[in-house]
Design a binder for these strands. Structure first.
Lengths: 240, 240
DNA sequence: GCCTTTTTTCATCATCTGATGAAATGAAGA
DNA sequence: TCTTCATTTCATCAGATGATGAAAAAAGGC
C-alpha cells in the first residue's frame, strides 16, 4: 500500500464537463475564476468560512477541487479573494457618492446628507447588483461580527472610507468630539450591515409586516435613524 | 482488519486526570457539565459553530470527547445548550427591568426610558457577569448575523421580549406605525449586538481613542442614539 | 460488603478535509 | 507539424472530524 506504482489513467475521457446543471456556456480561463468566486461567495455568505468546504465550492462551480487551488491557493486565500473582489468597487462607489455630495452642497452639508451619501451607494448596489452583491453584504456582516479576525479584516479593506466619513462629519459639526463620532459610527455600521444582510429575522418578528428584502423600507428609515442618533450623541452632555 | 477481537485495556490507569492546566478543583457531575458549557461557549463565540471541533472543546474543558456526547448528544445540541443556558437569565433580567420601569414611571414613560430599560440589563450583566457573559454576547451577535439559521434561532429565544418592547413603545407613541417600530428595532439590535460583542474594530479605527471593552462609553451613548433614531423614524413623513 | 446505576475512559470507525504531484489536455506560435 | 506553456483532470495522501460501543471506574442504596 505504501510505494505502489501509479496505474495509468483508466479512461482518457475526452474532457466532457459532467453536464453542468444549467450553467450558461462552458466558462474557461478568466471567466472560470469568476465562476469559482461566485460559488464561493454564495456559500461563504450563507455558512461562514469554516462552514464551507473546498469540495462544496468546486461542486457548486462545476470544477475540480485542484483547479481552485491552482487559481487561488489555500482556502483562506480564496476567501480573501472573494472579500477583495467587491471591496474595491464598494469603496470607489462610496468615494464618488461623497465627492458628489460635497460638491453639490457647498456650505450646506448636513449630518443626514453625509450619512446618506455614505450608505446610499450600498443600498443601490444591493438593489441593482443582483444576488452576488446580496451575498457579499451578508458576508461582510458576518465578518463585521467575528471577534477572532473580523476587526482586522474590516479595517484592512474599509478603514479609509470610514475615516473620510468621520472627517466630513467633523467638518459639518466642528464642535463634535471624535470619540462620539467613532462610537456613533460603530452603532451605524451594526445597523447598516444587519439591514443589508437580509437575515429574514424581521419577517417573522413582525408577523410578515416587514421584509428583510425590502430595501426601500430600509432606505426610507435608516438615514433618518442614524442621523438622529449622531445628532443626539453629539448634543448629549459630555460624559467621557 | 474487519472483525478483530478487541484487545483488553492495556493499562488500567487509576483514573488520574491528566494534571489539568490549573483549573480549580476536579469538577464532576453537574459542575462538569458547566465546565464543558463554559469551554464550548468561549470557543463558539470566538470561532463560530463550524470553526470549533468537539476535540477542542474537550481539551479546553479537560475531559474526554465521549463525555461531551454523553452529556449533550450531537455537536449541534451542545451549541443549543450553550445558547439556551444564558438566554433564560437574559429574558428574565429584561422583563424585570421593564416591569420596574413601567411601575416607576406611570404615565411618564419616554421612548428613551423604555429603550434604556430594554438595553441596560445587558450592559450591566456584561460588565458584572465575567468573561462568560462577554463570550455569550459575542456568540449572539454572530448568530444574529447568520443568514442560514440565525433568524430562526434568534426568534426562538428572544422574540417574546422584543414583542414586549414594541408594545410598550406603541403605548408611549400610540400614533407610531408597527412597521416603523419593527424596522427601528432591527437597527437597534444591530447596533447593540455589535457594541456588546467587543470585536476590537473601534480600537484600531479610532487610533486607540475608543475601546471595545469600554461599556461605560457605550452606555453613555447607545440609549440616546437609539432613542433619537426611533423618534426620527416615527416622526418622519410616512412613505411605506 | 454486594449489587445497581451513573459517570468516565479507551479504542476505534467511517467519513471528510485541505492539499498536492503528476499526467493529460488544449491553445498558440514557429 | 512540432514545441512550449498554461490549464484541467485524476488519484491519492496524511491528518482531522463527529460519533459510538464497550470496558472500567465511581457513586449510591441496602
Amino acid at each position: 500500500m505504501t510505494s505502489q506504482v501509479r496505474a495509468p489513467r483508466a479512461q482518457p475521457v475526452p474532457r466532457a464537463k459532467p453536464a453542468g446543471r444549467g450553467r450558461p456556456s462552458k466558462a474557461t480561463g478568466r471567466d472560470l475564476k469568476e465562476t469559482i468566486l461566485d460559488a464561493a461567495e454564495g456559500l461563504f455568505a450563507r455558512h461562514g468560512f469554516h462552514g464551507v468546504t473546498i469540495r462544496q465550492v468546486a461542486a457548486e462551480a462545476g470544477v475540480d477541487t485542484a483547479l481552485i487551488h491552482y487559481y487561488f491557493g489555500a482556502k483562506r486565500e480564496l476567501f480573501d479573494s472573494v472579500f477583495l473582489r467587491r471591496a474595491e468597487i464598494l469603496n470607489t462607489a462610496r468615494s464618488v457618492s461623497m465627492d458628489a455630495y460635497e460638491k453639490n452642497h457647498p456650505g450646506t452639508m448636513t449630518v443626514e446628507g453625509v450619512i446618506e451619501a455614505f450608505i446610499e451607494p450600498l443600498l443601490r448596489i444591493s438593489q441593482d447588483g443582483g444576488q452576488g452583491w446580496k451575498s457579499y453584504f451578508a458576508l461582510v456582516a458576518q465578518v463585521n461580527n467575528t471577534p477572532a479576525w473580523g476587526g482586522e479584516t474590516m479595517a484592512r479593506f474599509f478603514d479609509p472610507v470610514v475615516h473620510r466619513l468621520v472627517e466630513t462629519l467633523k467638518a459639518v459639526r466642528p464642535d463634535a468630539e471624535y470619540r462620539d463620532l467613532y462610537w456613533s459610527y460603530q452603532f451605524l455600521t451594526g445597523s447598516m450591515m444587519l439591514a443589508l444582510s437580509e437575515t429574514g429575522r424581521i419577517d417573522s418578528l413582525s408577523n410578515g409586516e416587514c421584509h428583510s428584502s425590502d430595501l426601500g423600507a430600509v432606505r426610507a428609515r435608516l438615514f433618518a435613524y442614524c442621523a438622529a442618533g449622531f445628532e443626539a450623541v453629539i448634543a448629549r452632555a459630555p460624559q467621557g
